[in-house]
Design a protein around this nucleic acid. Structure first.
Length: 854
RNA sequence: GCCGGAGUGGCGGAACUGGCAGACGCUGGGGACUUAAAAUCCCCUGGCCCCGUGGGGCCGUGUGGGUUCGAGCCCCACCUCCGGCACCA
């Protein structure tokens, strides 16, 4: 072959992409005899075209997929599209309202999918495209509907009226997880409103305990992700205590029930607080002289939206209802307030307030001049309620607590709770912060909820044989509101499945997080028309051995997917209760951006900041029918994506770094094409009796095998590449000076194999040019030979008093006496030991010797 | 405020389990090739200092202390940055 200056990526990369596809090299399930490995990456939203974030994520997964295949695994590495959601629908609305055109989200989305698919293929990612799916297709979403109906049968899905989060911008309700700081997760400027509506919920709280406890078994998950889930689930042990209502009037409940995690402070209760939305708030004040005042307060707080009420400044505001409750432990009468800081959704919507030992209660008591009663004294200190400036929340000794005086409060928690239970005043219980999952969305571009509302029978599930309930096409995006409401064909002929009478179809669609909660099951059997997937396939392939994705999905997506996996098991469809054995959270692609205030920082690439680099600059767009060829090609881009940072931290884009990667690709190309003859020698094994450069080079080759193999196994792509570059440098030098051409050829082959997962096109092409008929990806991964790694001489570091003073070369395995003798003789060491007495010698064989002298 | 994670050259980052700090890359500098440039290749590149140009010394992994023969790594305190949660009773 003639020497060539530059790697002709625009020809060679597509050549191998075609060949791999033709040979079905990436098809999963081809080797049932091999150990399975399910490698999953979070599927993309098809937003027009591939961006740099995709390039990085899939470069990571693909390198791993190719490595694992070469290591003898039957790898399932699928790809699909999370294709429902607001962007496509908003594009349709914009087209209709601003441009007066009609744009149907379905063909629009399919166009985006085609474009991004072409981009991904042009990167040479080894996905098994025979399993491709898109969640917006009826063949997929009908199974969302089936799963929903089965959940409905089992009471895991239910419709109920609740105060729900409404985003005026999205024109739909949101799940709790989708509200951050009172703002919509997609619109950080938009306040979320509370509305009382009838909506569909999935009872994820039924699984709270299991979702929490099984986190402990997920050894392959990053601790911080597990921690975020634990915090979100928010389990706390406590006690429900009933406080009798004083001066009870007809129609009023006998008790006010509260939840507390601190029964040790029960004797310190000086007031009660009820949430303003609590139905009792109005009722208790009715007929009292305070009624008007209370009503105006409650109305004012209710009118405040969530973000104001829970804002950082969090000024506590409340009002006495003019009523009292009785502390069941000591018979004290305590006033009842309504206040903004008590949440209706948590616990019972009502609390006991212990200002001495709870900071919030303390602040409130100070403001409204409620007495403070100390019931826990810190060790060696006496608290004076009048002098306190903050609550004492730490443990201490019980005081003013009747029979419990003198007891450590840590014990008091248990003992007083026991006492409450024995006296029939309440019971021990567990509370979770986790709420049920609100899945209704008042939008078009999602899975229709398969329910029919009948005036007589109520909401009735659509029979499974009538599924899928398809999205209609006669929809109008030019007007506000859910387009499903105005579609004629959608409602046409709707009849109650139970009584047969004319009825109305549910027009809510499902939260798109439903789609991504089980897509990894569907990949196993994407064409199955009879059920969501074959259980035998689930048995073989699940759990996902390695899941890779962004940490931004640490709570929502991962929690929902874990929930669905358990539900799917309980529906009898599958057996594995945890979906993802190992989780890896990759970092973002960032680029320098100068902000308005003049500061420059490296921040996530985003369209809105304009600090983006389009990957198509590098891979071209000819595959999309365009005319540009691409600057550097896919392999150079992949190399850069993996070489500059560890994959779990952010990657800073740099044009210079990209040039460096491209230079390396060309350099490798040049080296191989210029020395084709010398490198094509086929003699493989049996490099004995090597000497000098040959021996050293052989050792470097095997050290590289060992190092690179270990690095791939722990996502150390950046260090694997560093070792690959080192090996390449050694290879260049050995080609110049080494005695054995067979050994150079061997080293060259190893280099190609080790780097193939990262630069697959380049390596497969060069592999072929070295005379191999089969793809490099069918060769087994090399093993490092321990005897090749052995050295007969080692450099031992010599220290005097822990400071480096010299190095000596000794035979490997030399004992302390031998090394000591050589070390003492070394010039600089001798100088430093002069006039000193050696008191101790620390010796680490083959590494270091330290003279402790004075 | 609480809970996590991280601070290493001009920059991105290496350093297994406490044993040569700065692998690999980028930037910068010098040189070779060339009429010249590009491309390519080679050498140098943490700071300060000493002499004989080969070496030698001191300092150096956010700050202050500690443990150890020896600390980027372990312990204590503090500072800064990033991420998450935030009235959850």
């Amino acid at each position: 072959m003639p020497p060539e200056q530059f790697f002709p990526h625009a020809e060679i990369e597509p050549k191998w992409q075609r060949r791999w596809e033709d040979e079905g090299l990436h098809r999963a399930g081809a080797h049932p005899d091999r150990p399975k490995f399910y490698l999953l990456e979070m599927f993309p939203y098809p937003s027009g075209h591939m961006h740099m974030g995709h390039v990085r994520n899939y470069s990571i997964g693909d390198a791993l997929a190719r490595f694992l295949r070469m290591r003898g695994h039957d790898v399932l590495y699928p790809m699909g599209f999370d294709a429902f959601g607001l962007p496509a629908e908003n594009a349709a609305i914009k087209a209709a309202k601003e441009e007066g055109k009609s744009l149907n989200p379905a063909p629009f989305t399919e166009g985006c999918i085609a474009s991004i698919t072409a981009d991904l293929k042009r990167m040479g990612f080894s996905h098994d495209w025979t399993r491709e799916l898109a969640t917006c297709r009826p063949e997929y979403y009908r199974w969302n509907q089936v799963i929903f109906l089965r959940m409905l049968e089992r009471g895991l899905a239910e419709r109920r009226s609740a105060a729900v989060n409404w985003c005026p911008e999205c024109q739909t309700v949101l799940a709790n997880e989708q509200v951050h700081d009172g703002k919509c997760w997609r619109h950080t400027e938009t306040d979320v409103e509370l509305r009382q509506l009838d909506q569909w919920f999935l009872k994820i709280t039924d699984y709270a305990e299991e979702l929490l406890s099984e986190l402990d078994s997920l050894d392959g998950w990053p601790e911080h992700v597990k921690l975020m889930q634990r915090n979100w689930i928010g389990k706390s042990h406590g006690t429900l205590v009933r406080f009798p209502l004083a001066d009870r009037r007809p129609g009023e409940p006998e008790h006010i029930e509260i939840f507390t995690t601190r029964p040790d402070t029960l004797f310190g209760v000086t007031f009660m607080v009820i949430a303003p939305e609590h139905p009792l708030a109005h009722r208790l004040a009715r007929g009292t002289e305070r009624e008007a005042e209370v009503r105006s307060f409650l109305n004012r707080v209710a009118a405040q939206d969530r973000s104001v009420r829970t804002a950082e400044d969090r000024e506590k505001e409340g009002i006495a209802l003019g009523r009292e409750a009785i502390n069941p432990l000591n018979g004290d009468r305590v006033p009842i307030f309504a206040a903004n800081f008590v949440l209706m959704e948590y616990g019972t919507g009502c609390i006991m307030a212990v200002p001495a030992h709870d900071q919030r209660d303390f602040e409130f008591a100070k403001k409204y001049d409620v007495p403070i009663r100390v019931v826990i004294q810190p060790e060696g200190e006496t608290l004076d309620p009048a002098a306190m400036t903050c609550a004492h929340v730490d443990p201490g000794v019980q005081v003013n607590s009747g029979a419990f005086d003198g007891m450590p409060s840590t014990e008091g928690i248990e003992r007083i709770a026991d006492h409450v239970v024995e006296q029939g005043l309440g019971k021990k219980t567990v509370q979770f912060k986790l709420r049920d999952w609100l899945i209704s969305r008042q939008r078009y571009w999602g899975t229709p909820i398969p329910v029919i509302h009948c005036d007589d029978c109520g909401p009735v599930g659509v029979p499974e044989h009538q599924l899928p309930v398809r999205l209609p096409e006669d929809v109008d995006f030019a007007h506000d509101g859910n387009p499903l409401e105005s579609s004629r064909s959608f409602q046409e002929g709707a009849a109650c499945p139970r009584c047969g009478r004319a009825a109305r179809r549910e027009t809510d669609t499902m939260d798109t997080f439903i789609d991504s909660s089980w897509y990894f099951h569907r990949y196993l059997d994407p064409g199955n028309a009879g059920r969501p997937f074959d259980p035998a396939l689930e048995e073989r392939w699940l759990p996902v051995d390695q899941y890779i994705g962004g940490v931004e999905h640490a709570i929502m997506h991962l929690l929902y997917a874990r929930f669905f996996t358990k539900v799917i098991c309980d529906l009898g469809l599958a057996t594995h209760r945890e979906p993802f054995k190992r989780l890896f959270t990759q970092g973002m692609v960032c680029m320098e951006h100068t902000f308005a205030d003049g500061t420059t920082r490296s921040v996530k690439m985003s369209k809105s900041l304009g600090n983006t680099v389009d990957p198509r600059i590098h891979i071209g767009n000819r595959h999309l029918g365009g005319s540009t060829e691409g600057k550097t090609g896919a392999d150079a881009l992949r190399l850069f994506m993996l070489s500059d940072s560890p994959p779990d931290s952010q990657l800073d884009w740099s044009d210079e770094g990209m040039d460096g990667a491209s230079r390396f690709v060309h350099r490798v190309w040049r080296f191989f094409t210029q020395r084709a003859d010398r490198l094509s020698g086929r003699s493989g094994a049996g490099f004995e009796n090597l000497t000098g450069d040959d021996l050293n080079f052989h050792r470097e080759v095997h050290a590289a095998i060992q190092g690179v193999t270990q690095d791939y196994g722990r996502f150390g792509f950046n260090t694997a590449i560093a070792k690959g570059r080192q090996l390449f440098r050694a290879l260049e030098m050995h080609a110049e000076r080494g005695a054995s051409a067979a050994l150079t050829a061997h080293g060259a082959r190893i280099f190609l194999v080790l780097m193939a997962p990262i630069m697959p096109h380049l390596c497969d092409e060069l592999w072929e040019r070295l005379g191999h008929a089969e793809s490099i990806f069918t060769t087994p991964w090399p093993e490092a030979d321990p005897s090749a790694l052995a050295v007969d001489e080692v450099t031992v570091v010599v220290q005097v008093l822990g400071k480096l003073r010299g190095r000596v070369t000794v035979p490997a395995g030399s004992d302390q006496a031998a090394v000591e003798a050589v070390a003492r003789a070394e010039g600089n060491v001798a100088k430093h030991l002069e006039g000193k007495t050696v008191r101790k010698v620390v010796f680490v064989p083959d590494k270091m010797i330290n003279f402790v002298a004075s």
